[in-house]
């Protein structure tokens, strides 16, 4: 059940001219973009987006002498989309990413983590430290509790993914891609005109949208949650992580509110730079892509100068 590049609207394809690559990872077929040469940057998206979220990053990062790799998480974008909920777990997605990055034998990796790209990417980074160079964190989290206040609310969050409601609202009606992203950007009209179709087109049928309501169910809300132990491990390991880290956050982020989440990351990673504030809600790449890419280039150049 694959969406294909030729199925995308022409306006979208013109913004995503990159050659598709596919790898067999952990039993699934994963799509990724691989552009440029140099130390690799791996850009990780979350729910319900795909590599297209980083379309404004590719040119400035490759122009700065970096290799840019953008995988589509299994279940999203142009990657294979399993049709059973049990196909998805946080550990499984970490293993998917690990398989890809080991196949490509990447070293000196800078991971750029957004939303579920955070726990997934950090799960890789903390078990493959010898391959890592730096981290960039944006509107994400890395601990079991407390959750974002947004994720505890009945309206709209828990209603959206509750039993039968998830398959109806996010499955039949594709509400997260068709409406959720729109509500979580600042310039909604620009997003509607230029980008929205890219997110809905790759999730054409209810069965392709499974992960849009499965990922919300993996966010721990109490200590009985399925991913509680993994998140506790990530939090514990992160405290000993000395990787250079950049935090970039949207001023208007009302999903992972900056006061709570940046403060917590600063506690776990006291050496982290930032947060650098940009215009943006949860999907800050939509409002401030080029600005964030410039921050990343500057951050990496600064650290390259400091290296012995």
């Amino acid at each position: 059940m694959l969406a294909r590049l030729p199925d995308l609207p022409e306006t979208i394809r013109s913004m995503w001219p990159y050659r598709p690559n596919f790898a067999r990872v952990n039993g699934w077929r994963m799509h990724y973009v691989d552009e440029g040469a140099g130390d690799p940057l791996v850009l990780l998206h979350g729910n319900p987006t795909w590599g297209f979220l980083y379309r404004d990053f590719v040119k400035p990062l490759t122009a700065a002498g970096r290799r840019v790799i953008i995988p589509d998480m299994i279940g999203f974008g142009l990657s294979e989309k399993p049709t059973r909920e049990d196909a998805h777990s946080l550990d499984g997605h970490i293993a998917n990413l690990t398989a890809l990055l080991r196949q490509l034998d990447l070293r000196r990796i800078t991971l750029v983590c957004h939303d579920w790209g955070g726990p997934t990417g950090l799960g890789f980074a903390l078990t493959n430290r010898e391959r890592m160079h730096a981290l960039v964190l944006m509107s994400t989290w890395a601990w079991p509790l407390p959750p974002a206040e947004f994720h505890t609310r009945m309206f709209p969050w828990r209603m959206m993914h509750a039993p039968l409601l998830g398959p109806y609202l996010l499955g039949r009606h594709n509400a997260l891609a068709a409406r959720g992203i729109y509500l979580s950007v600042v310039d909604r009209e620009k997003f509607r005109e230029r980008a929205q179709a890219a997110y809905t087109a790759v999730l054409p049928d209810p069965a392709t949208r499974l992960l849009t309501w499965t990922w919300p169910r993996w966010i721990p809300l109490d200590d009985h949650a399925r991913a509680f132990a993994r998140f506790r491990w990530i939090e514990h390991e992160l405290r000993s992580c000395a990787l250079p880290t950049l935090m970039v956050w949207g001023r208007e982020d009302d999903v992972f509110d900056p006061d709570t989440f940046c403060r917590k990351f600063t506690t776990l990673l006291p050496h982290a730079e930032g947060p650098h504030w940009v215009t943006g809600r949860h999907f800050l790449q939509e409002d401030s892509g080029p600005e964030i890419a410039a921050l990343i280039v500057e951050f990496l150049q600064r650290h390259a100068r400091d290296e012995p």
């Binding site: 009945m154 209603m159 039968l164 409601l165 609202l169 509400a175």
Partner: peptide, 27 residues
């Protein structure tokens, strides 16, 4: 059927919240 289900589940699950969610998501 979903409204009926939420009514039956009860407790913290309110039909008003479901209706508000449905309207927000333009269902």
């Amino acid at each position: 059927i979903l409204c009926w289900m939420i009514e039956g589940v009860g407790g913290d699950w309110k039909v008003a919240d479901l209706l508000a969610t449905g309207r927000l998501l333009r269902i």
